[in-house]
């Protein structure tokens, strides 16, 4: 495939679920490898959600109502044209208005909303280089963590000098790259993260959460990781021999 130029329009279209395969898969791959790309996509998702909230809330009735009126007028005009052109365009006999009004809150929006929270968390994390988070990020890519990610089965954990590492699950993405979800308990916080294997296990996403009293209470960070993996097109979790085999292959 020719090189994909990740313009703002392409990333926005991905965020909106408007890209067809294989371009969408290519963007998902880029998102997994590049935090900047992930962040841009998330910002587009976030702007959509915020805009939607504003238009739905009627918080500031002045401009939205004007806009709504303008939009409604345009839709009326469009529908009139549509009705006139029904014979030539049978597909559009159903009015555009009823078509979009009848759409339930689209699945992609629900996903977008959850993923927005995810990657903003990652952006926040990664963006705070001068803060303790930078140290935490370094821990996530510590050689000891990378070594354990290459051999520890899902559900297992190991004590490291700077915290307790628990490998949660293993996935193969649509582009066949291997990724692992894990949690690092360190001091008073736990970090849920995803690392994908390139030449090394590189952390592509991280979300910090305070440690709860209950040992393995699912944290919001874990939910965010699930959304993140879903957006990347992760397959079902690999377990047992399938996981061991995948790990062995990736180490070659």
């Amino acid at each position: 495939m020719s090189e994909l130029h990740l313009t703002d329009e392409v990333l926005m279209a991905f965020a909106d679920g408007e890209l067809d395969e294989p371009v969408a898969a290519a963007v998902a791959g880029a998102m997994a490898q590049n935090p900047t790309v992930a962040r841009k996509i998330v910002e587009f998702q976030q702007s959509r959600r915020l805009t939607r909230s504003v238009f739905a809330s009627n918080l500031a009735p002045d401009v939205p109502s004007e806009l709504r009126a303008a939009v409604a007028a345009q839709i009326e005009a469009y529908e009139a044209v549509s009705r006139a052109g029904e014979r030539q365009e049978p597909v559009q006999t159903q009015s555009i208005r009823s078509e979009w009004r009848s759409r339930a809150y689209p699945m992609k929006m629900a996903l977008a909303a959850s993923v927005a929270a995810v990657a903003v968390a990652a952006g926040y994390f990664i963006g705070q280089q001068s803060q303790p988070e930078a140290g935490r990020l370094a821990q996530l890519e510590d050689p000891l963590v990378r070594q354990e990610l290459g051999r520890l089965g899902s559900g297992s954990e190991v004590e490291l000098p700077f915290g307790r590492l628990r490998v949660i699950s293993t996935y193969r993405l649509a582009d066949q790259s291997l990724c692992r979800e894990f949690r690092l308990h360190s001091g008073s916080s736990a970090t849920d993260a995803v690392a994908c294997r390139a030449d090394e296990w590189d952390v592509t996403f991280a979300a910090a959460a305070p440690v709860s009293d209950a040992e393995y209470t699912p944290s919001s960070g874990g939910d965010l990781v699930d959304s993140y993996l879903g957006n990347l097109g992760a397959g079902p979790p690999l377990a047992g021999e399938a996981e061991a085999e995948a790990l062995a292959q990736s180490a070659r």
Partner: peptide, 22 residues
């Protein structure tokens, strides 16, 4: 820009639908 924002993000039209309306 506000118009297209209203149609796509406010009203959930696809890009193509918004293009037709506008």
């Amino acid at each position: 820009q506000r118009e297209v924002l209203a149609l796509v993000c406010g009203e959930d039209l696809t890009y193509r639908e918004a293009a037709e309306v506008l």
